[in-house]
Nucleic acid binder design. Structure first.
Lengths: 335, 335
DNA sequence: CTGAAAGCGCTTACAG
DNA sequence: CTGAAAGCGCTTACAG
């Protein structure tokens, strides 16, 4: 790889001039600028990331913290982020934040502190207080997306409203025995807080029912996977006093509920209505009524927020993300 | 952030000694090593990535080229890669390779050449010859995963054998009118080659039929999505001389075929058998017979191959990835 | 408008 | 076993 120095020699100018010509910073005569550009092109010169970073303190790279890579929702968000970052010349460094304690420690204490990223986007992460401390101590722009800490500037959907919308849709159809599948991220006994997404949805659900003077017809905790949704729905549907409707806190769990209903010979929507959350790419095929929340767009928004902070320290304007009830064949009035 | 220099001062040694103590390279007395470690811990010192990279030429980071982020298959592979890279202290830099010409050019001519990664993993990418030239010119270890270029060391499933296995499963059940949904990546008229995955699967399918003395009962090109599989299946199932079996080149297309059959009132597997490829996480719920290929494990294998090349230049041992026929309820003998 | 030079924070021969 | 010093390849005040 050619170096700045070689370009300088070829263009018969100093390295300072080459740097200015190529970066566009500082005033130069058009003639020299053109000469330098030509020399750089001929040599196929590209600035060395590490040398440039060392000199400027900037890396042109954004770190993204993701809890689960292989889930449609996160993959979509990530795609949205990548879509916006690339054209602006920012690289994306991916950090998969698992539950493994030593991996988490290494990430916060070492990996992120090596100075490889200029900013951080944190996706729907449950972070401990000391982890947030370490994140903030980096002194970098940070944007959370659905991250349940009031200490992090976060873009979020109003999850209580999401749950209320779904629940009221069912109430509006005339359902009175409505069960919920969801909340298990922190557990009911969580000493942390109830700002995480699953908890907010559960609370929204319960409040909507309470406001209607109705008590929940059941709740089963599940981990936002089809398998778990399937298991949870099976429990609800084989208990006595079967619900006429289920509000699942994610589409994947709702899919599981649909499979469970089919296996049990329960007709949807005749004997059971099901609502999910996400607007999963498959929800249309399943005919699932859902609250769509456009994860790809969320990723784009998060990337734009970070780019704004990076460019002029401007915090994102709005922090509330849109959602939308999409009514399909999985919900109807109870018989 | 504390610097090496500060650690050196605190431990009352030279910066050279600190570097040696922390990296483990070079021989040092246990006493000084301990003293340096203590000083580093007290200051919360972490090596600067850019300074270290500039001095050594190594970045401790692997670039991953992905065509589509929001597809289950790629997301799983990515997760597998991340799983193996993290414990070895390597960062993962994600490059989303779209079809946009200018973005591709920027990636190969600039982004990858900035020296930000020590190695590259390329996932199932269709690369032009000049792009492969540029990739090779980086002089870095490269591992392809299902990448259709003989010029790149690639881990791959024997896709012709995958297709043959699926097809022979259908033949073995007694099917004689078998159609295929797949191949569209390069198009039939591709002047490039037919080493890409969709083409290999199509060829495997056709050869298996030919060996059995049977002609294909149809082929529709589709883009590996549910939507496209749905559309393609609809075409096949509403034509005259409807096939009794469909081999779809991916599970997602097979899901689409199942939805199409259901809409058309065609009983699966009574009137139609469907086989897919991938072992998608949903395939079990759909009762889909499939050829599983374990993308998460593929990602792990690719990461290990790269780590091997990075550590001692050892090329990966085997380059063939496993697959497995999983028979479920979507296939049966024709009526 | 352009250049000489210091500095970013490491690593690694080279000496001793 | 340890240190002084050069060097990695840039950028940016500071001069002129």
């Amino acid at each position: 790889m050619a170096t700045l120095e070689e370009v300088a020699r070829r263009a018969r100018v100093s390295t300072a001039t080459v740097s200015r010509a190529l970066s566009g910073r500082g005033r130069l005569s058009e003639a020299t600028r053109a000469r330098v550009r030509a020399a750089a092109d001929e040599l196929g010169y590209v600035v060395s990331a590490s040398a440039s970073s060392l000199a400027t303190g900037r890396t042109q790279s954004v770190g993204v913290l993701v809890p689960l890579l292989d889930r449609w929702f996160y993959a979509s968000v990530l795609d949205g982020i990548a879509t916006r970052l690339a054209p602006r010349g920012y690289d994306l460094t991916l950090y998969n934040l698992t539950d493994a304690a030593d991996q988490r420690r290494h990430l916060f204490q070492t990996a992120l502190r090596r100075g490889r990223v200029d900013a951080v986007i944190a996706l729907s992460l449950l972070l401990r207080d000391d982890e947030i401390d370490q994140l903030l101590a980096l002194g970098l722009p940070i944007v959370g997306l659905g991250t349940p800490s009031p200490r992090l500037a976060t873009l979020r959907v109003d999850d209580a409203a999401v749950a209320r919308t779904a629940t009221e849709h069912l109430l509006g159809l005339g359902h009175r025995r409505i069960a919920h599948i969801g909340q298990s991220a922190t557990g009911a006994d969580s000493s942390i807080h109830s700002l995480d997404i699953p908890s907010l949805r559960r609370e929204g659900f319960e409040r909507a029912l309470r406001d209607a003077g109705i008590t929940p017809a059941g709740f089963v905790a599940a981990d936002f996977t089809i398998d778990e949704g399937h298991r949870a729905a099976h429990t609800l549907l084989t208990g006595y006093e079967r619900p006429t409707a289920i509000f699942a806190a994610s589409d994947e769990m709702a899919f599981g509920a649909l499979f469970a209903a089919r296996e049990l010979g329960i007709d949807v929507p005749g004997d059971l209505s099901v609502v999910g959350v996400d607007g999963h790419e498959l929800s249309g095929f399943f005919g699932l009524t859902t609250i769509a929340q456009f994860p790809h767009g969320q990723g784009e928004r998060a990337a734009e927020a970070i780019l704004g902070l990076l460019a002029d320290g401007q915090s994102p304007e709005g922090t509330t993300l849109p959602f939308e009830l999409i009514v399909r064949g999985s919900t109807a009035a109870p018989r």
